[in-house]
Nucleic acid binder design. Structure first.
Length: 264
DNA sequence: AAAAGGTGCAACCGCCAGGAT
DNA sequence: CATCCTGGCGGTTGCACCTTT
């Protein structure tokens, strides 16, 4: 997000020794949030140190910046990381490593902090369960050859299911129309096509390699995340919950007898 | 019902780069 | 050119909440 106002020329201000003593730390209160949000909406971001001072906040500029970027910013998204977003994170992390802010640039509304937290709590947890290092080749291979294909499979499946649902709705609408057609045949609707294949137009295509380094989903393929949201229903809460429970466990990713996988 | 342990997330810390003085 | 200040970034921590025992 660009600054709303141009950053004014810097002017050195004398050290403010009295400030450090009563600087506040810890969780932000509602009042502080309101002060900061109101100030930024009126004056823009600018220099965070003066934002903190002028807004009447006993916080450091850094703290204000963080609160705004990670929480108060109007376009920030909270809640579950969708499978599509997970796929982007896995792919971009395999390219750039822990460049959270760079990765976040490709996930509109997500902050580097959120992505970092996701990686540490979810991805690293799976690595621990597999008793391997998250940066090891073995784990990266597992991500590329098992995890990402499964994500793609799930995304595709959900998209098809969503399409089928809307097709079913259309079919029942057609049936209703046919019922009324008996009374008014001139109102017969156009023939409906509900083949699942036809629903794939506009569907996002991903690809993963099968052993060739660097052959995973191309960035150009996944940049659609920067555009409109995926169709509703494809990743709604219930579906996500189901996905998390059924597909993200290592027991599912791995055949049970291979849980004690030897990486040799 | 309560204690212990685990998890997720918001916020802080320390380092660094870049610009102003 | 040296020093200082600020913001950006990745790593880490503290705590509330949830789950398990």
């Amino acid at each position: 997000m660009e600054f709303i106002n141009a950053t004014p020329p810097r002017k050195r201000s004398p050290p403010r020794e009295d400030d450090a003593a009563d600087l506040k730390k810890g969780p932000w209160t509602l009042e502080e949030d309101l002060l900061l949000a109101n100030y930024v909406s009126l004056h823009g971001e600018g220099r965070w140190d003066s934002v903190a001072r002028n807004a009447g906040l006993k916080r450091t500029g850094k703290s204000c910046r963080l609160r705004w970027l990670n929480y108060l910013r109007p376009d920030v998204r909270h809640g579950n990381i969708t499978p599509q977003e997970q796929l982007v994170i896995l792919e971009l992390h395999s390219r750039w490593g822990n460049r959270w802010s760079k990765i976040a640039q490709h996930l509109p509304g997500r902050t580097d902090n959120e992505i970092k937290n996701y990686w540490r709590t979810r991805v690293q947890k799976h690595a621990r369960q597999l008793r391997c290092d998250v940066n090891s080749k073995q784990f990266k291979d597992m991500v590329r050859h098992l995890w990402m294909p499964r994500l793609i499979e799930r995304i595709t499946f959900a998209a098809a299911a969503a399409a089928a649902t809307s097709a079913a709705a259309a079919t029942s609408a057609a049936a209703a129309a046919q019922t009324s057609m008996h009374q008014a045949p001139e109102l017969a609707p156009a023939k409906l096509s509900s083949s699942p294949e036809s629903s794939s137009s506009g569907e996002q295509q991903f690809s993963t390699d099968n052993g060739v380094e660097g052959g995973a989903a191309e960035l150009s393929d996944i940049c659609w995340l920067e555009g409109p949201e995926p169709s509703p229903g494809a990743c709604d809460d219930l579906w996500l919950q189901d996905f998390e429970e059924r597909w993200w466990s290592m027991e599912d990713l791995w055949p049970q007898q291979e849980l004690q996988w030897s990486w040799d």
